[in-house]
Amino acid sequence: MNFLDDFLVRAALAGLGVALAAAPLGCFVVWRRMAYFGEATAHAAILGVAFALGLGLAVMPAVLAAALLMALAVSAMTGRGFAMDTALGVMSHTALAAGMVAVTLLADVRLDLMAFLFGDILAVTRWDLATIWGGAVLVVALTAWRWPGLLLSTLNPDLARASGIDPRREELVLTLALAVVVAVAIKVVGVLLIAALLVIPPAAARPLAATPEGMAAGAAGLGAVSALGGLWAAFVFDTPTGPSIVCTAALLFVLTSLFGGLRKRG
């Protein structure tokens, strides 16, 4: 696997993996109006990183655990009657702040916070690549398996119940998958940008799609183009990689929105 020796090839593959896993989940994030869920989970990941480094644990499982705990806490809060944005706001800021405090208290920890905030896709190792693709395959398989139930639960929980589907179980599946995506993506695009990658490609795919499946496929395609295009732009213009990927995605969003507007008028 000599071609994996090239850091650009590794970076491209990592970006593709994250884009593919984020696409179907991002659609649900958009449909359920939980755009800040990615952000909150990602902030929790910082807390996970701090604890992992402080206690000498592996980073990936700690991040996964923190992201899961966050997701479950948010689910519990909305179950108790808090609005989704309130629950996410409380948990998101708390997790970020607690992470910062924890990093400072663990004085001997040399944490490159910038790397976790913005990611460093050019430093992706083969092991990272395996983790990302393992996570991506797991998430895509999980979403594909539960797809009809997830869709119906998102449309209307009572309709799901009437069809013998437990909407809370489907929500748990979604939560789990989101936590996995954040945990595997944190190194590639970083905490601040994973939320963007969850939301922007599905939003960009919306004007082009007639069905939910079409939107998920479009989001995967646009996400992949964003990852590769952003990587290329970062290489050519010597700009930071993660932000370049997000800017590319945003550009695609503008283009498809214009296209959707034209089509509606014409």
């Binding site: 069809s163 919306r206 069905t211 499946e213």
Partner: peptide, 21 residues
């Protein structure tokens, strides 16, 4: 159901809706 608010963010044809789940 009493009301079903389909968010505009979700593209959904009538045919696809009938095919759920």
């Amino acid at each position: 159901p009493q009301k079903l608010a389909i968010d505009r963010s979700m593209p959904m044809t009538v045919r696809r809706f009938l095919g759920l789940p």
